[in-house]
Amino acid sequence: MPEIPTESPRTGVIHDLGYRRYDGPREGSATIARTLFTTGLRHAYGLGRSGKSKVMPFLLLAMSVLPATIVVGVLVLTPATSLPVSYADYTNQTQLLVSLFAASQAPVLFSRDLRHRSIVLYLARPLGATAFALVRWLSMTVALWAFTLVPTLLLFVGALLAGLDTSDQVTGMLKAVVLQAGLAALVAGITGLISSVSLRRGFAVVGSVMALIVLTGVVTAVQAISASEDADSASVAVGLASPWSLYSGLADAWDAGITTQVPVDGAWVPVYVLVALLLGAGCLLGLVARFQKVGSR
């Protein structure tokens, strides 16, 4: 270690300033939370991390944008009166990519700090465990929302270029964007909770894939069987079990361009909304409890 003089020189010749105190401004918790949010959002896409970690998120994003690009190309070149796929349904059709993005990136935001124990360093700073958990969840939600928003906006621009009816397109697009935000919040909560509990990245990814992709597959299968057996309410009820079927059910009820096998209507609509809210709130509470528990160890 270099020898450092104990007194700062006052003669004007600067060789070494010694230790300098900081008496500049210190931001409040809101600004700190915003910094944490932005960093988390960037990290979800591998920005500010190693080059390798950018591959997965951007590959998935490219794959989810590709069909939209093709649709736009066809739309502009050939005369058409409507989009071949609605905005909300496009997200539904590419759900595998959205789920994979969530499963692969949630561990970045929710496992890393716990596994490497850097959470201790965060919690020894102004933001508490609750705020930390909520900000992380918000980063993941916005990352997922952006993931679905990019192809949606691409389709929208294509539709306008192709001269489709503007007011129809705006309505469809805005409905989809609202539904996507809810979906992102739910999926971020579920994958976040799974990643914060199973700290091994592999387990977290597999757990999230089970919860999102496998469960949704099972739900869709059961829904189809119930519908073909004319057990309509069973078919709608099973749809409460997965975030994706909640999304498509609510899109169906709201006339946002997805048609479920059995229409979600009447008293089922508030039930769908309620279950979605409870699921989201439950995941958030679980996340907060998890971070508080780890923080006090």
Binding site: S53, R112, H116, R117, S118, V120, L121, A124, R125, P126
Partner: peptide, 17 residues
């Protein structure tokens, strides 16, 4: 926590940063 620093006993550094 705003004006205090803490160096924990155990490892707490992410390896990829």
């Amino acid at each position: 926590r705003r004006v205090v620093g803490y160096m924990p006993e155990h490892d707490c550094l992410p390896p990829d940063v």
